[in-house]
């Protein structure tokens, strides 16, 4: 039937929209990135201009260009590199110790129900306890040196990793355990084929949380027991009222955290290759 029907109207179609230029297309493909970058640059520009015009108090807030030149000055000092070395050592040692102990322990505790009943109260206690509060005790036990900071880093990361790991083992899909049992898988094979892979996402979540906690450990440990390290750099800059140097110190920690998490994402990505690629939003 081709009778005219005035009630029908064509649906507006995306294709009918005007043609886009290559630049517009490039922008649409990189929109999130472009807008993110312009957000950051815009804020830095406002800060710089505000500082120069006197709206923002330079004495307290410094300005981006001052921070950049403070950074250039710092990286030429041997003391700065010594601070970096100390902080990196504290972080790497404490975090590594936490990873190699928390993951196996978490797997074991999660697997053996009775063991987990025994240990749960301790996990909960340590998880709710602000571990920073233990610093004076740790200093009392192992001294002001690098060991006390490693201990703080370790405690921060350890519980962030072990708690999700235990959780992950406990929530392993019963059906898959049944499959393993039905085919007569050994305890070891059950672990490597079911429990391990199922727990990986939980472990990587813990590792990511752990990075943040470990960085907090480094900075707070150093601020409490001021021997050397980037935390000390921040405190000294504060004492000398040098906000630009302080900002530089803070930025180093920030970027370490961002880099660490980005590196972990790559690891996660490798372990997640069996998962459907999820579209963001």
């Amino acid at each position: 039937m081709t009778t005219a029907s005035p009630a029908l109207r064509p649906v507006r179609n995306e294709r009918d929209r005007k043609h886009r230029s290559p630049l517009q297309r490039w922008y649409r493909n990189h929109e999130a990135w472009v807008l993110g970058a312009s957000g950051v640059i815009g804020f830095l520009l406002l800060w710089e201009l505000g500082s120069r015009s006197g709206v923002v108090d330079q004495f307290f807030f410094s300005k981006p260009t001052d921070i950049a030149s403070a950074a250039v000055r710092e990286v030429q000092l041997a003391r700065f590199w010594n601070d970096v070395k100390v902080s990196v050592w504290e972080f790497v040692t404490g975090y590594t110790l936490a990873v190699i102990t928390a993951i196996p322990l978490g797997l074991i505790i999660g697997w053996y129900r009775r063991l987990s009943y025994m240990i749960d109260p301790w996990l909960n206690l340590f998880n709710s306890l602000p571990r920073i509060a233990l610093i004076p005790l740790l200093v009392l036990w192992v001294g002001l040196g690098v060991e006390s900071k490693i201990a703080v880093v370790f405690l921060g990361a350890f519980f962030s990793i072990i708690i999700p790991t235990v959780q992950g083992v406990r929530t392993v899909d019963r059906r898959l355990l049944d499959v393993a049992k039905s085919f007569g898988a050994s305890q070891r094979l059950t672990f490597t084929s079911v429990v391990g892979p199922a727990t990986v996402p939980f472990i990587t979540t813990g590792l990511r949380l752990g990075i943040g906690r470990a960085l907090i450990g480094v900075i707070v440990g150093e601020i409490y027991a001021q021997t050397s390290g980037l935390g000390v750099l921040i405190v000294r800059a504060n004492e000398n009222i040098q906000p630009d140097r302080m900002f530089f110190g803070v930025l180093i920690f920030t970027f370490s955290g961002i880099l660490g998490v980005a590196a972990l994402r790559r690891v996660e990505h490798y372990f997640d290759r069996w998962r459907p690629v999820s579209e963001e939003r």
Partner: peptide, 30 residues
């Protein structure tokens, strides 16, 4: 071979293994 083997309800394949590794799983258990 085995005395018995079970074909389970849906989603009982190991999602982290390829088809071939899934199919070979029973043998790996042996």
């Amino acid at each position: 071979g085995s005395d018995h083997a079970m074909v389970f309800q849906d989603s009982s394949l190991f999602p982290w293994y390829s088809v071939q590794r899934n199919v070979a799983y029973g043998l790996a258990c042996r």
